[in-house]
Design a protein around this nucleic acid. Structure first.
Lengths: 207, 207
DNA sequence: GATCGTTCTTGATCCAGATCAAGGGCCCGC
DNA sequence: GCGGGCCCTTGATCTGGATCAAGAACGATC
């Protein structure tokens, strides 16, 4: 079954997906890619394994990689005054990475943590910029995935500003209940902008 | 003096700016544009005047325009349960529009209100998509402006999640105090995620 | 320049959700 | 299979900021 993404997005191909490279399948959700174009960019990507609990990108470092999830779950978050704030999760062919630093070249405030054993395909910014120039369709891919991210973030902003904790909890359960199996409740609570205690009480109270 | 944008962004050219078309100057903040490219896209843009208080885009309609501010101020907001939530302001060569609907083609939740007499250059989505394909550099412009918007939104998200009302007020005053002359305090309060009463009390309390 | 609506201020009260606190369960490493 | 950390839960209390209320100042319209 295809699941909606909490962060990043699009719908993975079904069925014959296993026969196609994950990266190519993801890119082709946005733009068609002929074999020649794929041959040019395929060597730019490298698969990296991450352990459960590994900090994939630490605050303060400049992040130059953009990733596509092969398997497992990443949590995107930042810290402030010792408090941890989750911004989203990546999995199943959606993108991963630290977009503030990747785009600006400044030290990251956002961090990335591998919540499970995971694997992601990474491309370096220099290679991606080269692909934008040299490979037809790739700059469009960059624009389209940004559009999708922006719309998703806007949706979240509207919900955070206008919904109560209970309503945010309900919508999360409708859309992404399966994440409860994969990450601790406290991180989902944080993603929903509430404390673990409030999350727990809502769980008990709501039906 | 050049002012930072609260929403959308970049730095307008100074000095000789008056001699160059506003749209071309804005695009050239992101990509170089030769005279031929400009000649191809220039006819796609039309200048529209908006009255103070005019609803530039209403909720529920599909928005197909993307705009660049010539003068005046637009407020981007949405309504929920009769409450008004401001998401940002556009002015001085920054972009304007309703990005949720523009990107998705679905009815808008976000609305646009002209806070002052204003004028904006508008391009229709169909023309912009054509420009992306036909005019070198334009697709890159689309990608780069989206990157900038996304980074700005991420910055705001971090501040909304981790700062107190007082701290958000202080940062706003540091960055964008001049907006107080242009729009009602209640709208700035809403942009900062607080009530007009709280905003007023902070004003009295903070220095 | 009087009138009316809107905005801003200031005070009193309220409340959703945070914080503080303590117990219990689970998993992991040895 | 025992010990030590997380987690998660549940209860008691607290609080930042909202809501309710009422004037005062401002500005647009005739």
């Amino acid at each position: 079954m295809v699941r909606p993404k909490v962060f990043g997005g699009g719908t993975p191909r079904g069925g014959y997906l296993g026969l196609m490279h994950r990266v190519r399948a993801t890119i082709e959700r946005y733009v068609p890619l002929d074999d020649e174009a794929w041959a040019r960019i395929e060597p730019m990507w490298t698969l990296k394994q991450h352990e459960r609990g590994e900090l994939v990108t630490a605050a303060g470092s400049v992040e130059t990689r953009f990733g596509i999830m092969e398997e497992g779950v990443h949590r995107i978050f930042f810290e402030h005054d010792g408090q941890d704030h989750s911004l989203g999760f990546s999995y199943d062919g959606s993108w991963t990475g630290v977009y503030d630093s990747f785009v600006t070249g400044r030290p990251a405030r956002i961090q990335l943590l591998s919540m499970t054993p995971s694997a992601a395909w990474w491309i370096d910014r220099a290679d991606l910029l080269r692909a934008y120039v040299e490979v037809p369709g790739m700059e469009r891919f960059g624009r389209l995935i940004l559009e999708e991210v922006l719309v998703g973030r806007a949706q979240r902003e509207i919900e955070m500003l206008s919904l109560s904790a209970e309503e945010r909890y309900r919508r999360f359960m409708d859309r992404s209940a399966h994440l409860l199996q994969l990450v601790p409740q406290k991180d989902i609570a944080s993603y929903l902008g509430m404390t673990p205690e409030t999350f727990s009480r809502l769980r008990a109270r709501v039906r």
